[in-house]
Amino acid sequence: MFRTLLQGLRPPATEPAVADPELAALGAALDGAVRKRLGRSLSIRAVDAGSCNGCELEMHALNNAFYDLDRFGLRFVASPRHADVLMVTGPVTRHMREALVRTYAAMPAPKWVVAVGDCGAGCGVFAQSPACVGSVAQVLPVDLTIPGCPPPPAKLLAGLLALLSDR
């Protein structure tokens, strides 16, 4: 049965990544800096700074066989000490601000920050709340924003690849 189940993963379900012109343009603004400094491999640390968990679900999906993040040299790591990129979701809540800043501080330089989702970009539906301190960019230097509520995995993948593009 093991064999059948292993077979089930072939022929590959994995799909080619589709470039997103909008995100490619955003990535180009980074001027290939990421690629120049780190080559093709990126370690990503995710921090939920107050998300509804919707963005997390779609980030999880990046690891499934359809999107297979690993094949691009991109992977989620468990410690900020191993990470090049910080992906941040959610409107930054007052209660998560400190943990977010500390996580960023724990990362070795050079490092990049990706704000994920409409919340990460501008607090989404929570923008008026005094319990939130603001968008990710109001707390950390953001290099790339991937909008959406939540951004589907294809969009997240396009964003991360844009980060890696030469130009």
Partner: peptide, 9 residues
């Protein structure tokens, strides 16, 4: 930690 003030909103 993810308190967003939902009831107030």
């Amino acid at each position: 930690y993810t308190h967003k003030g939902i009831e107030a909103l």
